[in-house]
Computed example of a mutant assay.
Amino acid sequence: MSKGNFPEDERPIEDVSQDVPEGVPAESRPSVGRVLHQARIAAGLTVDDISTATRVRIAIVHAIEADDFTPCGGDVYARGHIRTLAKAVGLDPAELLAQFDAEHGGRPAPTPAAPLFEAERIRPERRGPNWTAAMVAAIVAVIGFVGFTFVKGDDGSTEASVAEGSRPSAGESASASAEPKKPAAPKPAPTDSAIAAAPRDKVTVKVSATQGPSWISAHDHNGRQIFDGLLKQGDSETFQDNEEVRLVLGDAGAIQLYVNGKTIEDDFQPGSVQRLTYTKGDPQAG
Rank of each mutant, 00 (worst) to 15 (best):
50 I>M: 05
62 H>A: 04
108 P>C: 01
24 V>Q: 00
87 K>G: 15
221 H>S: 10
1 M>Q: 08
118 E>P: 07
190 P>K: 03
120 E>R: 15
40 R>A: 01
141 A>G: 14
144 G>A: 15
206 K>R: 13
278 Y>M: 05
71 P>G: 04
163 A>L: 11
159 E>N: 09
149 T>V: 15
38 Q>H: 14
249 L>H: 06
16 V>L: 02
133 A>F: 11
247 L>E: 03
207 V>I: 15
33 G>R: 02
208 S>G: 09
4 G>L: 07
100 F>E: 01
118 E>H: 03
260 N>F: 09
221 H>M: 02
51 S>G: 13
6 F>V: 09
88 A>C: 12
121 R>H: 09
17 S>T: 05
126 R>K: 05
238 T>A: 08
79 R>L: 00
128 G>K: 03
284 Q>V: 12
274 Q>I: 09
222 N>Y: 02
19 D>Y: 11
183 P>Y: 04
236 S>I: 01
235 D>W: 08
77 Y>T: 10
201 D>S: 14
259 V>T: 01
230 L>W: 00
176 A>W: 13
118 E>N: 06
271 G>E: 06
170 A>P: 03
94 A>D: 14
247 L>N: 04
18 Q>M: 12
263 T>W: 06
248 V>H: 06
114 A>Y: 09
60 I>K: 10
280 K>Y: 01
20 V>F: 00
236 S>A: 12
78 A>V: 13
64 I>R: 07
121 R>A: 11
267 D>P: 06
173 S>I: 14
211 Q>T: 06
20 V>N: 00
177 S>R: 11
170 A>V: 11
280 K>M: 02
158 T>L: 09
62 H>Y: 07
241 D>K: 03
228 D>I: 02
34 R>C: 02
161 S>A: 15
25 P>Q: 00
235 D>Y: 10
245 V>M: 10
258 Y>C: 04
250 G>R: 07
77 Y>D: 13
134 A>D: 05
161 S>T: 14
143 I>L: 15
100 F>R: 00
